[in-house]
Simulated scan of single mutants.
Amino acid sequence: MTGFILASGSAIRRQILTGAGVRFDTESPGVDEDALKEEMMLSPPGEVALALAQAKALAVSARHPQALVLGADQVLAMNGKVFDKAKDDREARERLVSLRGRTHTLEGGLAAARGGNLVWTHRSTATLTVRDFSDVFLDFYMERAGGELTASVGAYAYEGLGAQIFDAVEGDYYAILGLPLLPVLDLLRREGVVMT
């Protein structure tokens, strides 16, 4: 076990940390996300993302009190509505159609815990405008995207084929992927996980 644990099952978050040369372990937090979202249904999306990240970090930290644990979450918000990941390809197609020609935000929350206590939090917001793509493109994308359709809240992978969906994007690239890297690296330096 390293001194740093990512409390997330996200493949892209693991990829980001690995690409930055960070040594870490992963552990599923086992948090009932649906129950927490239900409790916070009237809260702003950014607060929901942060609360989920905190719950994940604290859950894993309780099991590994010596390690620094990072929890992360991201929610998609559009016109006051918060979206979850699509459950299947049909729902992913509906999500993409609902986003077509419109602007949405990705609200991200990060939280770090050690010894069962929160030691750091961070919030991010990215604004993305989806182009008014054709049904022909949508069919092409649905056929090629595969697991991307249900792996991310927007049914797209911005780091891959999903980039073709957008007209404009404002925000940190890594925040869009779900793990704002520079603030995380700053945290890891301060906590002695990576070199200063």
Score class of each variant (00 low, 15 high):
Thr2Asn: 14
Gly3Pro: 10
Phe4Trp: 06
Phe4Asn: 04
Ile5Phe: 09
Leu6Asp: 03
Ala7Gln: 07
Ala7Cys: 07
Ala7Val: 10
Ser8Phe: 04
Ser8Trp: 04
Gly9Ala: 15
Arg13Met: 07
Gln15Leu: 11
Leu17Asp: 12
Arg23Ser: 15
Phe24Asp: 11
Gly30Asn: 08
Asp32Asn: 13
Asp32Trp: 06
Asp34Arg: 14
Leu42Arg: 13
Gly46Phe: 03
Gly46Met: 01
Glu47Met: 02
Val48Phe: 02
Val48His: 01
Val48Ala: 05
Ala49Gly: 04
Leu50Tyr: 05
Leu50Asn: 00
Ala51Ile: 00
Gln54Ile: 05
Ala55Asn: 07
Ala55Leu: 09
Ala55Ser: 13
Ala59Tyr: 03
Val60Glu: 04
Arg63Val: 04
Leu68Gln: 05
Val69Gln: 06
Ala72Asn: 07
Val75His: 01
Phe83Asp: 01
Asp84Met: 08
Asp84Asn: 14
Asp84Val: 04
Lys87His: 10
Asp88Val: 08
Glu91Asn: 03
Glu91Gln: 14
Glu91Val: 11
Glu94Val: 06
Arg95Thr: 15
Val97Asn: 05
Ser98Trp: 12
Ser98Glu: 14
Arg100Asn: 00
Thr103Gln: 11
Gly109Thr: 08
Ala112Ile: 11
Ala113Val: 07
Arg114Asp: 11
Gly115Val: 10
Val119Pro: 06
Val119Thr: 14
His122Asp: 08
Ala126Arg: 02
Leu128Asn: 03
Arg131Leu: 03
Ser134His: 06
Asp135Met: 05
Leu138Gly: 08
Asp139Val: 03
Phe140Thr: 13
Tyr141Ala: 09
Glu143Ser: 15
Glu143Tyr: 09
Arg144Val: 00
Glu148Arg: 04
Thr150Arg: 02
Ala151Thr: 10
Ser152Phe: 14
Gly160His: 09
Gly162Asp: 08
Val169Thr: 09
Glu170Pro: 00
Gly171Pro: 07
Gly178Leu: 07
Pro180Val: 01
Pro183Trp: 07
Arg189Lys: 15
Val194Phe: 07
Met195Ser: 14
Met195Asp: 14
